[in-house]
């Protein structure tokens, strides 16, 4: 296994479509729930331990070798918002394109064929990590980090927040990112039924509101 492969996969410039998504930060900014770096930290922390943990565990399970189609179904059950299901599949399809160009494998081809409109992104990412020779905890780390780096980058654009402050928020979350990744990888060892389903009511509700906005900067 190559540690550098993890850097490639976790790089914000990995061309898999994430840059167009705010992870729920855009509606939170508009509704005044994120106004500064402290709010951003609270938002990221909440997202990390809910949607982030759930997604990280799905990725870890895929990296562990559990059936990606069963995981895709488990992801659906954990995503009551149709807007967020559509986003997850759209990003999954984009991740799949990048993954097949980067680390081609029959496993990725099989999932792409079974889900031509995209599987849930964490499942695709986990399978990509597996193909790249990475382990379940690597995949979980990657997803956990994305869960907070997406909103942080978006808030820099939305609020003109000082990028140093936004990056400091991410750095201070590092120990919790490690915890979430370890927790997700541990759950993945115990099979699909043991995967966490932590959810965040406001993220689900505001995702639906945001999807209906006629004018927005971010796709989600």
């Amino acid at each position: 296994m190559s540690r550098a492969a993890l850097l490639v996969l976790a790089d914000g410039r990995f061309p898999a479509g994430g840059h167009a998504h705010s992870g729920g930060a855009e509606p939170a900014v508009t509704q005044g729930r994120i106004r500064d770096a402290d709010d951003l930290a609270a938002f990221c922390r909440g997202r990390l331990h809910t949607a982030g943990l759930t997604a990280a565990a799905l990725a870890a399970a895929a990296a562990h070798g559990l059936d990606p189609l069963a995981l895709d179904e488990a992801a659906d059950a954990r995503t009551p918002s149709p807007a967020l299901r559509a986003t997850a599949r759209k990003l999954g399809r984009q991740m799949m394109r990048a993954a097949r160009a980067t680390w081609p494998s029959p496993e990725l081809d099989a999932l792409a064929t079974a889900r031509p409109r995209g599987a849930h992104q964490p499942v695709v990412l986990g399978l990509t990590a597996r193909t790249a020779g990475l382990g379940p905890e690597d995949a979980a780390h990657c997803v956990a980090y994305e869960t907070v780096s997406g909103p942080a980058t978006a808030v820099v654009r939305l609020l003109s927040l000082d990028p140093f402050h936004a990056t400091a928020v991410l750095a201070r979350l590092a120990p919790e990112l490690d915890e979430v990744a370890a927790q997700a990888a541990e759950a993945a060892r115990h099979g699909i039924d043991a995967l966490p389903a932590a959810s965040a009511p406001l993220l689900d509700i505001t995702a639906e509101a945001h999807a209906a906005w006629p004018v927005r900067l971010f796709a989600s």
Partner: peptide
């Protein structure tokens, strides 16, 4: 295509969408 406020990213750096 929605570009997250950065069309140049969507046409050059990350063309997946």
């Amino acid at each position: 295509v929605e570009t997250g406020a950065c069309p140049h990213t969507a046409i050059r750096d990350d063309i997946s969408a």
